[in-house]
Amino acid sequence: MADRYFNPFQAIDIHVPAQFHEAFSRYSQTGGSAVIDQSPFPRMVDLWFMAVCVAARLDLEPENISQYETRKIIDGSIFSSDPWRVHALMLVAIGRTGDIQVVSEPRKMMALFSGLAVAGLPKVLEMLKDGDAEPIWNLSDSIDNLLRRKQAA
């Protein structure tokens, strides 16, 4: 089924700054604890995607990832089994750049996403730690507050 969908990120690797790699291992079940309360994200790409979403939500400026030492967490083929994320990312690219033409430039889009991820990761990590409960509840409560604050605004 995944083959039916167009995945422009098929051949592009996803990198994150090495300084966040420990956090990726800790909060991802594939790299750290198998307990979901402590490691809310099943895979590293899920934390990466969360960081992109938070950055987009908060209108954070994308960081220049080229200035960081990076590590690959996975390649873009992961999205072939997850087509709605492809659409979501492409819409983020259009929304952030205001340029339709960007959809024909996968590497440019991935650079944007990587920059947003680097910008959003500190915020997500802060959310995971902000509270007395387990990381999953800290994060959920923070997102809840974030969504409600914006709704009220």
């Binding site: 939500r57 819409l91 983020v92």
Partner: peptide, 18 residues
Amino acid sequence: ALATDLLAPVLKRAFGKL
């Protein structure tokens, strides 16, 4: 659903373009 809610503002701009 979470992605939809979080990205709602930026998605709104993208939908406008489309």
